[in-house]
Design a protein around this nucleic acid. Structure first.
Length: 979
DNA sequence: GCCCGTCTATTTTTT
DNA sequence: ATAGACGGGC
């Protein structure tokens, strides 16, 4: 009876119900992995609706497009009766960045004036989404900036040694903590922040500089040891060992003088100037990056009381709060409406899953919520009362009930936050213990259908094979390994079945292992798909494009010929012979080059003035029409269309963008193992998880920081190098003062590596395996904690997948099956489903048809590119008839506003249509949807009409006050068709 | 046991 | 370029 009472009490105070029920006031929710976070947020949303609040007054913020889409889908599904579908479809449920973008487009025009800039933000600004694209833009900007400011900052520019990206990244970092430049220089409070925090520094200095007690007497201090390591092989000026070191530690007398380093003052001024000029440069080009977009949204809300109040919400909920930075926290506060002294704010997150500090997010936003809440409110109220609600009071709710993992895995997962990453690394155990209670018993009873094991392999390849062996065992020993499925609502067992490939996920700290595993799996006959980023310019397609473009630039360029010859099948000695003898007395020995390659180069030269044509021709030569090829074209087109670039520049950009990435799912079998990085796996769950590649220097990652500039709270902003003279010689010296401060203030973020381990472990529901071939401390220590042996002699025959390969087209057709949630579908795909397929006569592809298709595609791309430029007010000169026509056509529209290449998203009942409209022309009472076609006839017109119809419907639902009409412009025929 | 020189591998990714 | 691991010299 006593027990029953406790049960009842517990049920009543289930933290989930507590959150769902309490809608008023400030709530911070610590919701661990698998605790039903999304479920609770949606339920709570419904509760707020019940109190007769309108969807437009409830802001629900997430961080990924997918999460926002999912959240809206659930809300629409559950509450359409309460509020009506159309209202919920338009409710503010969106990503943080989408919200900022919308705010700026609506009310951000004058925002730059708050920095003292004359530029405006126009409603159709574009975002620099691609990092290599932005880096190149910054490089270009910096060259001009250097030219203008050469006299003042010459020495600083030398000291940077061309590492321009370091400047860009520190600017973004400053932006994310709310330090902005201005035409009048840094504000007084920002100046202080850039100097650093001496108290904090001093305290850490003393702590690290304590002489340690060793077994044979005094041991040098940690700081002394660390700094001696740093000093090796460095060129310092005025560095006197006798002054810097005492007997067993660093001389404490130099503490204050190294901190107040006068050399940094000009550097701070330099950063302000670069920062502000770069913002100005981007605005002039109608460009923003993500950081500046958030900054301008903040400036609007901070400075304009009217706009602030007009944009506030009665209810604000934010998910994944551990992924916010300091500036985003402040924006959230500014968005809360003052409801009689109270704000209805609910921040949900899990500090243990904070793994994005490389983009400046702060888990302290959760762990120090109370302090930050009042601290940030004070800062926002500095000169004017902006936060009027009470920030002294809030409720903290902790979700403890786990609905995902087995008892064994759940217990084990907590321990991963206590393993040290190196021999020296000390875990802050008090911090973890006080912020993470022992887990309750899990809700899902898995009994014996669970295990955690550790396997050691001999080498890299063997580790991949080991994973595949274990996968084979899981699949084939059907009596031993079973997947238990539970009913969602009741928690009852619904099904027990054998393991399928798609139940299994192999995680790695880096992408490299994922690719290796996929390669090995292909040989072994195990289906493995990869999901995540691919470096496109490292792909074969990318390498060949770069090679040919180099040759186009300079046919003597041996670095161009080598990949080309390699692709032609020449052996290594042959290529070597070629490279040794290709150039004799500075002239080309062209006899060595196969005639058809020379011929192709001549063909390419006719495209010298149209880079996109050249790229298309290269891809066409090798018959690349795959996803990677399309992405390459799209990336190069983006670079090409922002500003006309020369071939020279393009080659340099590609050389510098080896890491340009795009997301992909590779492999096309439906029942397959998935491999991905731990970062990519966040938010997902799998019955079987492998944490592979737990190897030395990989996981935990112990890489240092190579940047030329440091910035953190206690050290402030400092350059690591400076330009100076030594006698009559000029050198770039390292600044030993900065290095020493860095040794004191930089805390290697192994806590984040541990959180990454925690994220990986908590993906698993039933079976969890670790593999390694050079065990790192994580592997050894977690094995110890679990009490398992490390198995080094595991053998199992890899049994090839017997199920039939499913072709790509079958998988695509499968997508009409919408049971698994909302699908994204393009209008083209939609049309394919709607139109009778017999209308298209399928012809076998031959060389001619491929050539023709390629030519047509080139032409279509060029026309679209030119139309895009014309619509954006960029004049294009050309003698081509079609180009003249399209220019004339666009001018003849006489629209109030034109938006070219408009991306749009239109949710229908169970799918979302996603596409790009060539051109939208806005008039007072109507919008015209325009699509260009370069066809030589109108035989596909019915198809096109349908496409336009879909666009029109979508547009009509977005711009309710306007009529929508459709227009197809057949450029080659010079004919218009109204739809 | 302590210190120092040498060796070894070297990113994660959303908007 | 960096930091941790390792091993030789004392």
């Amino acid at each position: 009876m006593h027990g029953k009472q406790i049960m009842a009490l517990k049920k009543h105070t289930n933290p989930q119900d507590e959150l769902i029920g309490s809608t008023e006031g400030i709530h911070i929710v610590d919701a661990g992995a698998g605790t039903g976070k999304t479920y609770s947020i949606v339920k709570r949303y419904g509760n707020i609706l019940d109190k007769s609040y309108k969807p437009e007054n409830i802001l629900l913020i997430t961080f990924t497009k997918n999460a926002a889409e999912q959240m809206r889908e659930k809300v629409v599904k559950d509450f359409s009766e309460k509020s009506g579908i159309s209202r919920l479809l338009e409710a503010p449920i969106m990503t943080f960045h989408a919200f900022c973008s919308r705010l700026l487009k609506k009310s951000g025009m004058n925002s730059p004036s708050y920095l003292g800039l004359d530029e405006f933000i126009s409603g159709n600004f574009s975002l620099a989404e691609d990092s290599s694209f932005e880096e190149e833009m910054f490089r270009k900007f910096f060259m001009t900036f250097s030219g203008i400011n050469n006299e003042k900052y010459e020495s600083i520019q030398y000291a940077l040694e061309g590492k321009v990206n370091d400047v860009l990244s520190v600017i973004k970092k400053l932006c994310s903590v709310g330090i902005f430049p201005s035409a009048n220089g840094w504000s007084e409070s920002d100046k202080e922040k850039l100097k650093g925090n001496y108290e904090l520094f001093s305290e850490r200095f003393d702590r690290m500089n304590e002489i340690r007690k060793g077994e044979r007497g005094d041991k040098q201090s940690l700081l002394s040891e660390k700094f001696k390591n740093t000093v090796r092989d460095k060129l310092y000026k005025d560095f006197k060992e006798g002054d810097v070191y005492a007997v067993k530690n660093v001389n404490p007398g130099i503490k204050e003088s190294i901190f107040n380093d006068e050399a940094q003052e000009l550097f701070h001024e330099f950063i302000n100037d670069v920062y502000l000029s770069y913002i100005e440069y981007m605005l002039k080009r109608n460009q923003l990056n993500y950081e500046f977009m958030v900054m301008f949204a903040y400036l609007v809300l901070y400075n304009n009381k009217n706009l602030r109040q007009n944009n506030q919400f009665e209810y604000v909920m934010i998910d994944e709060f551990q992924d916010t930075d300091e500036l985003q926290f402040k924006i959230i506060l500014l968005l809360c409406k003052n409801m009689n002294g109270i704000a209805n704010l609910c921040a949900v997150g899990d500090w243990k899953q904070g793994i994005y500090s490389f983009r400046n997010t702060k888990i302290e936003n959760i762990t120090e919520f109370k302090n930050r809440l009042s601290e940030f409110a004070d800062e926002l109220n500095k000169d004017e009362k902006r936060i009027e609600f009470d920030t002294g009071d809030h409720t903290k709710i902790i979700f403890e009930n786990n609905y995902r993992s087995s008892d064994t895995i759940l217990k084990f997962s907590r321990g991963t936050l206590f393993v040290s990453a190196t021999a020296e690394d000390e875990v802050d155990e008090d911090f973890v213990s006080s912020n993470f209670a022992e887990p309750l018993l899990p809700e899902r009873k898995l009994e014996d259908l669970t295990e955690i094991k550790f396997y050691k392999a001999a080498d890299r390849i063997d580790e991949c094979r080991l994973v595949l062996k274990k996968i084979s065992q899981l699949i084939n020993e059907k009596d031993k390994y079973k997947i238990r499925i539970f009913e969602n609502e009741t928690g009852k067992v619904a099904e027990e079945r054998p393991v399928m490939y798609s139940d299994i996920c192999v995680l790695s700290r880096n992408k490299k292992f994922c690719h290796e595993l996929q390669r090995e799996a292909m040989t072994a006959g195990i289906p493995v798909n990869y999901s995540g980023g691919i470096e496109i310019f490292a792909s074969e397609q990318g390498v060949l494009i770069l090679a040919w473009l180099r040759l186009l630039l300079n046919e003597k360029d041996i670095s161009g010929w080598i990949p080309v010859l390699d692709k032609e099948g020449y052996s290594f000695p042959e290529v070597k012979y070629f490279s040794d003898n290709f150039i004799k007395e500075n002239s080309v020995n062209s006899d060595l080059i196969p005639a058809d390659l020379f011929e192709f180069l001549r063909h390419l030269k006719t495209f010298r003035n149209n880079i996109l044509f050249a790229v298309e021709a290269i891809l066409g030569r090798y018959r690349y029409y795959d996803e990677t090829a399309n992405k390459l074209i799209a990336v190069i087109q983006q670079w090409n269309s922002s500003e006309l670039i020369s071939l020279n520049e393009l080659v340099r950009i590609i050389e510098n963008s080896a890491n340009a990435e795009f997301d992909t799912e590779s492999g096309n079998t439906s029942d397959a193992v998935l491999t991905q990085t731990i970062h990519a796996s966040k938010g997902l769950e799998y019955p079987v998880v492998f944490i592979a590649n737990v190897n030395e220097k990989i996981f935990p990652d112990t890489k240092g920081d190579k940047g030329k500039i440091i910035f953190n709270h206690s050290a402030g902003l400092r350059a690591k190098t400076f330009y100076g003279t030594n006698g009559s010689y000029n050198y770039i010296f390292n600044n030993w003062k900065t290095d020493l401060i860095n040794a004191v203030t930089k805390n290697p973020d192994y806590a984040e590596e541990r959180r990454l381990l925690y994220v990986a472990v908590t993906r698993a529901k039933q079976y969890l395996y670790f593999t390694s071939h050079r065990p790192s401390p994580f592997f050894v220590q977690t094995a110890g904690k679990s009490g398992s042996e490390i198995i080094s002699d595991f053998e199992y025959e890899i049994i090839k997948n017997k199920t039939e390969e499913i072709s790509v087209s079958e998988v695509t057709a499968d997508e009409s099956d919408v049971d698994k949630g909302r699908k994204f579908i393009s209008p083209h795909a939609l049309m394919e489903n709607l139109i009778d397929e017999s209308a298209d006569t399928v012809t076998e592809e031959n060389e001619y048809s491929i050539n023709l298709r390629n030519k047509n595609r080139e032409f279509g791309l060029m026309i679209h590119n030119i139309a895009n430029k014309t619509a954006n007010g960029i004049e294009v000169e050309s003698d081509i008839e079609e180009v003249k026509r399209i220019k004339e056509f666009i001018h003849s529209l006489k629209a109030d506003k034109l938006i070219a290449e408009a991306d749009f998203l239109y949710p229908e009942e169970n799918r979302t249509i996603r596409g790009t409209i060539d051109l939208l022309a806005f008039y007072k009472d109507r919008v015209t949807v325009i699509d260009y076609k370069t066809d030589k006839d109108k035989k596909n017109i019915e198809k096109y009409k349908l496409q336009i119809q879909i666009y029109k419907n979508s547009i009509k639902s977005i711009y309710k006050d306007k009529e929508a009409e459709g227009l197809i412009y057949f450029v080659s025929l010079d004919e218009m068709v109204i739809v």
